[in-house]
Simulated assay, not measured.
Amino acid sequence: MKKILLFGLLFSFLISCSKDDSPANEGIYFPPNGSDVWETKSISDLGWNQDKLQPLLDSLQNNNTKSFIILHDGKIVVEHYFGTHTASSPWYWASAGKTLTSTVSGIAEQEGLININNKVSDYLGTGWTSAPLAKENLITCKNLLSMNSGLDDALGDDVSPANLQYVADAGTRWAYHNVYVKMQDVVAQASGQSWDNYFNAKLKNPIGMSGAWIQSGGLSVYWSNTRSMARFGLMIYAKGKWNSTQIVNENYLNAATNTSQNINQAYGYLWWLNGKSSYHLPQTQIQFNGTLIPNAPNDMFAALGKNDQKVYVVPSKKLVIIRMGDSADGTNFALSDFDNMLWGKINELIN
């Protein structure tokens, strides 16, 4: 009898030790791929303030929003479309899509195709900039992901060699610059595939996203429906997993969503970070003291795009929040006054 009991205890112990530690076993819900099914969770189940939902939606509508989603542990709590925009309507991610490039760069690194600490010219050859060769060879892939390449950010969106000119040594100056798109060329060259094909195979299809890269002003901009943006945010929230599949390495993702250089504390690998003591913004070399979005939780990190395209990820609150639309308060390139106002409304709902 004792032997049977001991065996039972040992068996239970071994089973508990072998359990998959995947997010699915931690209570995170993942919607099925290729389906419109997406489980929901009610505001009352979460103990949120139902009376504050309509003021939030009214504020979103009054600020040119087209779509808005709140996920809690992957399940939809709020999903609303404004005007003629629908669940199937595509919209552009603008610079929020930079985080797609960051993520796929991490996938390429985990597959051994690239090393982000290597210089860009290892993959693209020399002469991809107009910088002196010695200066060009200082620029690593990590510099592109961290926005500290040292190239001139005042010459417009064109990333041809003639427009990529030296200003400072790589790593010594932070400046928001479209040169990050060269990481797409790096991945394409290293993988022997087009950027679109590699992106589709490694990220878009595995997590069930819709959408496509569309050329605009010499840059490739991602367009999708709102739920596809939510799928991406959910995968990031789940530490790089989709169900039990590790899409992007968790260690890389941790680096991507923490300070990547010593100039702009609020910037990782193309991700914006809240809760830091200072930050820089696009098109300025000024350091601003204080946190990026005071009303948002300190652990929040975000993909921020022109005209207020937003992906907010808040691990401590189990939240992923999506906003697509036109500019709420005038043209902007990432952060705007709308972020803090919106988080004030969100706080009234969730607290």
Rank of each mutant, 00 (worst) to 15 (best):
L57S: 08
W38D: 07
S12M: 14
L203N: 01
G218F: 11
W223D: 05
V314E: 01
Q215C: 03
D73L: 12
A238I: 10
G125A: 10
S149D: 04
G217E: 11
N295T: 12
R323F: 12
G211C: 10
P161Y: 08
I214W: 01
E79Y: 07
V181R: 01
I207M: 07
E39L: 14
I116F: 02
M209S: 06
N262M: 06
T172P: 00
Y267P: 03
T129A: 07
Q265S: 12
I322N: 01
L57R: 06
A230F: 02
G150S: 09
N307F: 11
M324T: 14
G305D: 02
S260P: 10
M147K: 04
W38H: 15
L138W: 00
D122R: 10
S42M: 10
G325K: 03
S228I: 01
S336K: 03
L124R: 08
A175Y: 00
S35H: 12
I4G: 05
Y81T: 08
Y312F: 15
K317F: 08
A266L: 10
I114S: 00
K318C: 06
S278Q: 12
N258P: 04
I207C: 09
F338Q: 03
S35W: 13
Q261M: 09
D51S: 15
V320H: 06
A334V: 04
N243Y: 13
A87W: 02
G106F: 07
A131R: 03
E136F: 13
A256C: 09
P55N: 12
S220D: 14
I107K: 04
W128A: 02
D339P: 07
V159D: 00
Q215E: 14
F232I: 02
I322Q: 01
S260Y: 08
G211F: 03
K135I: 03
A154S: 15
T259G: 08
N340D: 15
N197W: 00
G268R: 02
G47F: 06
I139V: 15
A238V: 06
G47H: 08
G125Q: 13
F232C: 09
G156V: 06
I346N: 03
L5Y: 10
Q50E: 15
A334M: 11
D58R: 11
T245M: 11
V313R: 04
M324P: 00
M147I: 08
N332L: 04
D326E: 15
Q50Y: 09
K317Q: 15
Q54T: 14
T40N: 15
A230S: 11
A154H: 10
L349S: 04
N264F: 00
N249S: 14
A154T: 14
K19H: 12
T226Q: 02
G208K: 07
M183I: 01
S102K: 01
S244Y: 09
S316G: 13
E136T: 05
A230M: 10
A168H: 05
K317T: 04
L5D: 11
G330N: 12
